[in-house]
Computed example of a mutant assay.
Amino acid sequence: MSAIKMAVVAANGRAGSKIVAEAVNRGIEVTAIVRHQKESPAQHTLIKDLFELTTEDVQDFDVLVDAFGTFTLENLPEHMVSIKHLTDILSHVSTRLLIVGGAGSLYTDKDHRQQLKDSADFPKEALPLARIMSQTLEQLRLRDDVRWTYVSPAANFLADGPRTGHYLLRGEEYSTNSKGESSISYADYAIGLVDEALSGEHIHQRISLIGQ
């Protein structure tokens, strides 16, 4: 077993379940934080709503992964509310917060004035989610009292894509691989996120992951 202790919020979701599986396979002690009991490879389960979590619930973990997501228009503000709650309960706590972020806020220029969501060909149906997640990231950047890392996926985030075992680590700017593609499977994204959980190399930073 790795010495690290990790908890995953929304561990039953598509991203959360991949992260839990990857972490457990890597020898990490994982607690699934879920609203409803469901079969999971996690060694421990905490049944509790995200918005009811307290500092006492999370302060003993080395890493808390926020894999919460909602996609219905009326619930999109919950992204901002959830991050506010998690950062509040982790204020001045040593536990690191890793957030499953979005790609729409990746910058498309060197001056960091234009984001992917501002592109003419950005899918209109994805704009509301991209906007709220971009606003959430900007609020997160103000929190120097929390050891956060925001992990953006590639533009094409493939829920059912294969686990190739490879990914490319990038920073704030939108990028593509050698094939000119910006895509990554949830499974390969989970590898990169768990690597970051183990290394802790990008505190107070946004990183991005793309498939090779």
Rank of each mutant, 00 (worst) to 15 (best):
M133A: 00
V65A: 08
V93D: 01
S91T: 14
S199A: 15
G16R: 08
E172G: 00
S91K: 15
P153L: 05
I184G: 07
T95W: 02
I89S: 06
T108A: 03
G13D: 10
F157Y: 15
A15V: 12
G192T: 09
R113H: 13
R170S: 13
L129D: 09
T55A: 05
F51V: 00
D62N: 15
L127S: 07
D121V: 00
N177A: 07
D62A: 05
V81Y: 13
R96V: 01
D109P: 00
T31L: 05
I4C: 07
D111H: 07
E74S: 11
K124H: 07
V93Q: 09
F68T: 04
P41T: 08
V194H: 13
S199F: 04
D160C: 00
D118I: 00
S94L: 04
D144R: 14
E138W: 00
G180T: 04
T54Q: 11
L116Y: 13
V100M: 06
G16C: 08
Q114W: 03
V151A: 04
H202L: 02
I99N: 04
L98R: 08
R147D: 12
L140K: 05
D57P: 04
D62H: 14
A32V: 08
D144W: 02
L98E: 10
R35C: 10
T136P: 01
N177E: 07
I210P: 01
R170V: 02
L50N: 13
R131I: 11
H166R: 13
H166W: 02
Y150P: 01
H204E: 08
A3W: 05
Q43D: 05
V58I: 15
G192H: 09
V20T: 13
Q139F: 11
V65R: 06
Q212Y: 14
Y174E: 06
S2H: 14
A21S: 15
E196F: 04
E52Y: 12
D195E: 13
W148A: 09
G69Q: 13
A7Y: 12
D144P: 00
